[in-house]
Amino acid sequence: MNIPSSITTLLLGIGLTLVSLWYGQNHGLMPVAASEGATHIDSLFNAMMTISTGLFIIVQGVIVYCAIKFRRKPGELGDGAAIEGNVPLEILWTAIPAAIVLWISIYSFEIYNEMGGFDPSADGMHAMHGMPAGKGSAMAATMDMGDVPKGSPRISALGVGASPANQGKAAAVNVNVLGLQYAWIFTYPEINITSGELHVPVGKEVQLNMNAQDVIHAVWIPQLRLKQDVIPGTETQLRFTTNKVGTYPLRCAELCGGYHGSMVTQMIVHTPEEYDTWIASQQQSAQAQAEIVKQTIAMNPANLSPAKYLAPYANEMGVKPEMVEHLHHQGMEMGGSIASVIK
């Protein structure tokens, strides 16, 4: 006697559920999660993986089953059953996916809120209130013309803001990010540090205020599951709090030219002590650099007389500065006399 098909179906259903639940949790496809927000996104992904695994197995299973069970044997004649549809069944397979996607939408909404997606300071709206100022700077940018509109954002702050608990508070660490072909420049305005790598203290809220100099770039830190385009002329922001010390890649994710693939740097998450040490060392070297800069301050050659401009070279060649001056004038006179001869 055969096992009743309802029992087989039930067992298959249980097996399918267990496999889906297991794989949804143990797929191991995501990199390390270095923030609470990343863990939230992972749980959303795990939920979607669970449902997807189930759906994947059902669809592939039905295809393979049909190919074996309903295959036309050699010499077999006749058609399949003339079933044109089954309205209750069709309603069922419309309703279940609808319910699933609705649930995923609500879940995503929750997670998005948790990440800080709805932070009013990051939705571009407060730029509306500050419209006159925004407009003025746009005009300024147009008027002094030609230049890339760095530092003159017209619309400010779109992206991912503070999580609901931190909204309205300033972030502990503010970093200005400038993306340019093909590098990142991180400036810490409060402590006057400029760096090519992003250093942040673990457990502190960090806000990146981002601008691009030339084309659109995108900051992507896979371990934080965060990405935001960096757009010339529009400031965007990202806010996050890390919870794992480590060094993580920070990659450009928006095509920005030939060497887009090499536009990679690091985000180093320090312990608070290490972070302070890093700041101290940076400030020291910044001071040292400032000294050098003072000594070798650049001069605009257009403001110098030829003699002064040429002085260093003349010295090197063992020529007296007065001689250079003299030669220069002679040259002018000679040129003048040649011109008059031609006339």
Binding site: L44, S108, G117, V160, L226, K227, A253, L255
Partner: peptide, 10 residues
């Protein structure tokens, strides 16, 4: 799903 897309976009 927006939160997941932010990770895997591009």
């Amino acid at each position: 799903a927006v939160p997941f897309d932010i990770h895997v976009h591009d």
